[in-house]
């Protein structure tokens, strides 16, 4: 029932060092730590010996729903400053927003974590600080759960893993569309049995 290839659905690529950046800010959640470790290694190696100063790299991390890989991040990067670790995404974003507000031109933001985390961080940087999406890279890590907003009652569930799920706000059974709003950082959930009340299909795992 999902419409294949809806053009608003984001395509996530891996994180790669942006040689145009002079300040590199890494933000990760849970299993996103691995992507950040890889990126930090690549930053250290540098492109053609153009490795950034260790002080030009900052790392923000929260375990989120887990696993907590904060220790690995702390060990993995001797020459870089220690990661800042936060108990939750809100705390991370608040500190990240302050940090970015003081950063100059040429800042590059790399984000790794669940899809809800990615867009929460984008909102902080883009809407809060005015950093353009072109300066932000994202890598989606962990299970393919999606942030979905109920079009009827506007409640967002940050981690929906099946299409057809029950809205925690209004209780309607929602079909998850591939239509995605970058402004809101959510997919659209639409009542699945509006035309045949009670006829709710079996939930199917979302695989992307």
């Amino acid at each position: 029932m999902s419409i294949p290839g809806i053009k608003s659905k984001p395509v996530y690529t891996g994180l790669t060092p942006d040689p145009g950046g002079c300040q590199h800010v890494l933000a990760g959640e849970g299993p996103g730590a691995e992507a950040l470790l890889r990126l930090r290694r690549e930053l250290a190696e540098g492109n053609d010996g153009m490795a950034p100063e260790a002080s030009a790299v900052a790392l923000f991390y929260t375990a989120g729903a887990g696993p907590d890989q904060g220790e690995e991040l702390a060990e993995g990067g001797r020459d870089f400053p220690q990661p800042w670790r936060f108990p939750d995404t809100e705390g991370l974003c608040s500190a990240l927003g302050d940090y970015l507000a003081d950063s100059g031109m040429g800042v590059r933001l790399y984000v790794a974590g669940s899809e809800a985390f990615l867009w929460r961080v984008v909102a902080t940087a883009r809407d809060g600080v005015g950093i353009s999406e072109a300066a932000i890279q994202m890598e989606r890590c962990g299970p393919p759960a999606r942030p979905v907003c109920c079009i009827h009652c506007k409640t967002t569930d940050p981690a929906v893993s099946t299409t057809v799920y029950q809205c925690p706000g209004c209780g309607l059974n929602l079909f998850v569309r591939d239509h995605f709003s970058r402004r809101l950082g959510v997919y659209q959930g639409v009542c699945v049995d509006a035309e045949a009340p009670g006829d709710v299909p079996e939930p199917e795992e979302l695989d992307s």
Binding site: K7, S181, R183
Partner: peptide
Amino acid sequence: GMNFYEWHGP
């Protein structure tokens, strides 16, 4: 806030 291709996505 969407662009021309995004809002025509569906």
